[in-house]
Design a binder for these strands. Structure first.
Lengths: 366, 366
DNA sequence: TTGAAAGCGCTAACAG
DNA sequence: CTGTTAGCGCTTTCAA
């Protein structure tokens, strides 16, 4: 049951009602404000953009402008302003998904820095290469003054080159080919894979799986293989499992890996925390205890990693902070130490990888 | 070590180099394309917007325009186009955070529907009322053709009224006061709180806590209290705990509630899944087993709820689907059945609330 | 089938 | 201290 609080307020809910109110439908313009305040349009612009404050306009005039703008609910038209100034004061972040909390964290970091500098932040989801291309085209069309590209779809090199050519401050969160003309902040994925796997080997594991989305770059896997090689463990192709980059994908990978006890791994290095959380779930479904029967290591050190059950051992990095620093240095036109940063990694040891399992290490001496 | 792939490509990384390339710095305009193709600007516009296809322009002319645009990497200026057409083909979603996966899911739903209709989706994070007001002002400035407001900061009623007055298709994901002139899709929070609590009571629990962020609306709590009242359980103020709306907040609330075994609850109804996940973590930290020693129920049925450990019982709803339907109905100018939808809820029973705990139910009969 | 003219709303430059 | 003039790049008439 609806109760009318103020008479007729509900009428606005009917798209056809209030035809007589049509006067309010069109946004008011600086012309309207100027007329009401008895000044000219440039004066309105000056006052409302705050530049009339010390430099020029009389206090009384300013007051009239403010009142008029207030009364009319005036908001300067964004398109007109950015057409004229050639700037939007918008920063766009392009990400492949928001479900993966890692991206939520990058975005949050950029947003906070942007807000502090009076930029709006505008997040665009690009689920594939085509959507990424169209998001970049939108930036090239002038919809943003700077862009962070957190996707990793290959094949849009032309679009990236355009960003560089136009000198639009842009940061790509991925390793880019040497010689490719766009700033990047990339995590040292190979080293991440290496330290994660090495830690598991150090705990006594020999059968270590790697769970990864299909089509992922080679970085983490190369580090994983290097650690195995150093320990004289022959890589088992059956222990490298490709699965969709989702919680469900991780859960299914665990079921697959743990189906036959004879061939099951005693440890898994996951491509990222999200897959690792899926693995924790799948292991439990298979009545495999983590870390007692299976050690799990993730990647990214998302906030959730400290709150999962068990808490997740994972590879941490400071990509977010460096991304923000580089982006705003570029926007300020400041010198940037290196335009191709590689962020170091560090292992954060929590519960999911357990303590050394000496009982499983065959004693080789004597 | 950097290896130059193509000669000089790296030079673009130096902001000061390539001064001679300055010709490429300014975006090319439809004027440039027209000149290169040997046609006029309106022809370029017609061809590239696809309307020249059947209606007017000769095939050969079209081909010349396409080639010229391609060669120049032409992208129509967004500000100019939307200034002229008074439309942006952008849909904005305003959300309070992306860390909470519930919002990521709403956004994803809107984005997929928008993409299918050739709208761009533009996510804006508003962490407080001021940021929310500024995000709405941006929409009022013409930056988007429609908006979904998933925040719940009170006090921006003026801004909402402006959206209504300007007939900008807008959907608020919250209960709005009856008579307030803006379409809304709200979950039946009271009923959600009721069914969750009632389920816990049915399992034999009597000491049931409610964990909620400070300043949250009364909806869920009212339902919680109604269920208690119906079961003749006197509400205990000490069992209603306010805590920040984060994983850490949930974890700390669990520690606080479980500190003294004498007064600890045997069940908790959490404000949302995120807090519930924090509770699961905090319970484990306190060596309290879920569901054996503590039953937990969440709210929202986020994807993660099916993958937590233990899997989370939670209140589900279909707000996302309804939101998308209403938004596009408004955009299409179609009739909308009701502009103030209340979405029904359903309890999804998983592991975290356990099975009936008959041992704790005092037998009242005989 | 195409070109010429006009104007969206704003701000920057300059004149008064 | 304030008003006049002009133009950002696009699309939509209208005329040819």
């Amino acid at each position: 049951m609806l109760i009318r609080v103020s008479g007729g307020g509900d009428a606005l809910l009917d798209p056809l009602a209030n035809a007589d109110d049509a006067v309010g439908r069109r946004a008011s313009t600086s012309e309207d404000v100027a007329r009401l305040a008895g000044v000219s349009r440039p004066t309105v612009s000056l006052v409302l953009s705050g530049r009339g404050d010390r430099i020029r306009v009389a206090a009384a005039t300013q007051q009239r402008v403010f009142s008029a703008a207030e009364a009319l609910g005036y908001v300067p038209n964004f398109a007109a302003r950015s057409l004229r100034t050639r700037r939007s004061r918008v920063i766009t972040v392009i990400a492949p998904s928001l479900e993966n909390p890692f991206f939520a964290e990058v975005i949050g970091a950029v947003k906070d820095a942007a807000t502090a500098r009076k930029y709006s932040t505008n997040v665009v989801i690009a689920r594939n290469g085509r959507e990424e291309a169209s998001a970049i085209a939108h930036v090239l069309a002038g919809s943003a003054d700077a862009v962070v590209i957190a996707t990793h779809f290959a094949g849009n090199l032309d679009a990236l080159r355009q960003l560089a050519k136009r000198r639009i401050p842009s940061v790509v969160l991925q390793q880019v080919g040497a010689g490719f003309p766009i700033p990047s902040v990339a995590v040292d994925l190979e080293m991440g894979g290496y330290v994660a796997t090495r830690h598991l080997i150090g705990l006594g594991h020999r059968r270590i799986a790697h769970v990864t989305p299909p089509g992922a770059g080679a970085g983490r896997r190369d580090g994983y293989l290097r650690a195995l090689r150093e320990a004289d463990i022959a890589p088992d192709p059956a222990l490298i499992v490709e699965t969709p980059n989702t919680l469900a994908g991780g859960s299914e990978a665990a079921s697959a890996l743990l189906a036959k006890p004879a061939t099951a791994p005693t440890a898994v290095f996951a491509y990222n925390d999200q897959l690792a959380f899926g693995l924790l779930h799948g292991a439990r479904r298979s009545a495999i205890r983590v870390p007692d029967d299976l050690a799990v290591v993730g990647f990214d050190n998302t906030v959730s990693a400290a709150f999962s059950n068990p808490e997740l051992t994972t590879v941490a990095h400071e990509r977010n902070r460096l991304t923000v620093e580089m982006l705003f240095a570029l926007l300020d036109g400041a010198a940037v130490a290196s335009l191709r940063q590689v962020v170091p990694v560090a292992l954060v040891v929590r519960e999911s990888c357990g303590t050394p399992r000496t009982e499983r290490v065959p004693i080789q001496i004597a």
